[in-house]
Design a protein around this nucleic acid. Structure first.
Length: 465
RNA sequence: GCUUCCUUAGCUCAGUCGGUUAGAGCAUCUGACUGUUAAUCAGGGGGUCCUAGGUUCAAGUCCUAGAGGGAGCGCCA
């Protein structure tokens, strides 16, 4: 008999018809006469109730139907006699596909901490919480592709292995086929990469931006969406060693249009979640964060603040003058600490902030220099609770200015001739941003730790599963 | 990487001033109950108190080192 997904079965009104569902048992309860199985197949956060008459199905058979077991249940779809669900299935046959020994199965019906579930990450997708998170994660990926596709962007695949060492976004994981027990070194004691797989030092990418710019200089509007790797020893609830990043790059736009894009894009994703993940968001709202849905709604209803760095510093210094205490100083030229960002976003404005025009010393070499010669056209989006969710900028398209900055910073560009060629041949004004996918997930799900919004998190000292 | 906290039953956690046989809730098992909603009720089993040293008549408890985990900070997305 053809299997019906539980999501569909719960919507059906074909009372009296025979139906088959397959899934994993969440719980079973009952008495000598009747037993109730809560069954979930991942198609929805909701379970379907299988009612088992013990005169029809033996206790011997039912013994194997424990929390975590996988079963196929056939029966008659009926209006529920009990409260709590509209429909249920009066079972006529139950086949056990796979048992789950209650003595060793790590998931129980009740109370697990997020920390514990990380230790059983291979099974945690079977929990309500992770089912919800993973369905939302899928939806956010589809929302992102849909947004860019509908706006005329092309999905551009940038390499995961790179030989350019100057992306400046942090420590890289090296990629080599060399025998690490017997490294060939030259007369200066340097490792000789000439016989390595790529003939030079290679690493996993920390950003697809530089290659993305090449795409934008031909296709006009592109975006990347792929895994990104940082070997930084970051131990926080907001960092992963392997994460997914979205990086649109757009020719012929300026700062205002870049900010419009950042804001419109984020609102589109949040709106998508509210519209397409209502059940899952409601669960997360009920179980973890009673203000989640209201917070998501407020983001799409509100206009983001657009705040030049210099004005931000003025606001912070005014606050300090009025007695607000911060751990770190914030004078013009300093990078803002988390506490400063949070003050602006959560206390002063109480809404998302796009901060612009940062001192050039605290930003990357490729950002477009303003006429004041002191600030660059960065456009970072700061969100409540998350902090920086987007890092964006207008790019410096002038070859001489870009080279001057590269030389001033002594960035090794000998392997980067191809990037500089974008400014030598048909250079164009352009801009783009990077969005950490899991940071978006943190915001949309209300989860507190980034390790809980990706199926198998990689962090320092942790690469199980 | 820095700071700080935590580690006791399958899970979540109590455990007083260092003192007899280490407890609870949930889970699990057994039994009861004619429709339950994380069912309820009764009973049973279940412990390398993270590891290694040390102090002490006596250590889950105090000290030292280590391991694992969380949080804050830094770096960043």
């Amino acid at each position: 008999m053809k299997r019906t997904e539980i999501k569909e079965a719960l919507r059906s009104i074909n009372y009296g018809s025979e139906i088959n569902v397959k899934g994993w048992v969440r719980s079973r309860r009952g008495n000598k006469n009747v037993s109730f199985i809560a069954l979930n197949d991942g198609s929805t956060i909701k379970n379907i109730q299988i009612v088992v008459d013990l005169e029809k199905i033996t206790e011997e058979q039912l013994k194997l139907v424990t929390t975590g077991a996988c079963i196929s249940a056939t029966g008659i779809l009926v209006e529920s006699m009990g409260k709590g669900q509209a429909v249920e299935i009066q079972a006529t046959d139950i086949e056990v596909y796979g048992t789950a020994d209650p003595l060793t199965y790590p998931l129980q019906k009740k109370g697990h901490t997020m920390e514990y579930l990380r230790e059983v990450a291979h099974l945690r997708p079977r929990t309500n919480t992770f089912g919800a998170i993973l369905r939302i994660r899928h939806n956010m990926a589809i929302a992102i592709h849909t947004y860019f596709h509908e706006h005329g962007y092309f999905y551009f695949h940038t390499p995961l292995i790179t030989a350019s060492d100057c992306e400046g976004a942090g420590q890289m994981f090296q990629v080599t086929t060399k025998n690490l027990y017997n490294l060939k070194k030259d007369e200066n004691g340097q490792i000789d990469y000439s016989d390595d797989f790529f003939g030079k030092m290679a690493a996993l990418t920390v950003s697809g931006q530089l290659e993305g710019e090449l795409g934008a200089m031909a296709l006009g509007k592109i975006y990347t969406f792929g895994p990104t790797f940082r070997a930084e020893n970051s131990n926080t609830p907001r960092h992963l060693a392997e994460f997914w990043m979205i990086e649109p790059e757009v020719a012929f736009i300026q700062k205002e249009e870049l900010m419009d894009l950042e804001e419109d894009f984020l609102k589109y994703c949040v709106r998508w979640a509210l519209e397409k993940c209502a059940d899952d968001l409601q669960f997360l709202n009920d179980m973890f964060d009673k203000t989640l849905i209201a917070r998501l709604q407020s983001v799409i209803d509100t206009e983001f603040v657009r705040l030049p760095y210099t004005e931000g510093i003025n606001i912070l210094q005014e606050a300090i003058k009025n007695g607000r205490k911060f751990e770190f100083p914030c004078n013009w030229g300093d990078d803002l600490a988390s506490e400063h960002e949070r003050y602006l976003v959560e206390e002063h404005f109480d809404k998302p902030v796009i901060m612009t025009d940062y001192p050039k010393e605290i930003k990357a070499f490729y950002m477009k220099l303003n006429e004041d010669n002191k600030t660059v056209q960065g456009t970072d989006v700061l969100f409540p609770a998350i902090g920086e969710i987007i890092g964006g900028s207008v790019r410096e398209e002038d070859y001489d200015k870009l080279m001057a900055e590269i030389e001033r910073r002594q960035i090794p560009m000998k392997d980067m001739w191809w990037y500089l060629d974008t400014r030598r041949y048909g250079s164009a004004p352009h801009a783009g941003f990077g969005l950490g996918f899991e940071r978006l997930m943190l915001f949309v799900t209300g989860m507190q730790n980034i390790r809980d919004v990706i199926p198998f998190p990689r962090t320092p000292k942790s690469a199980e599963f």
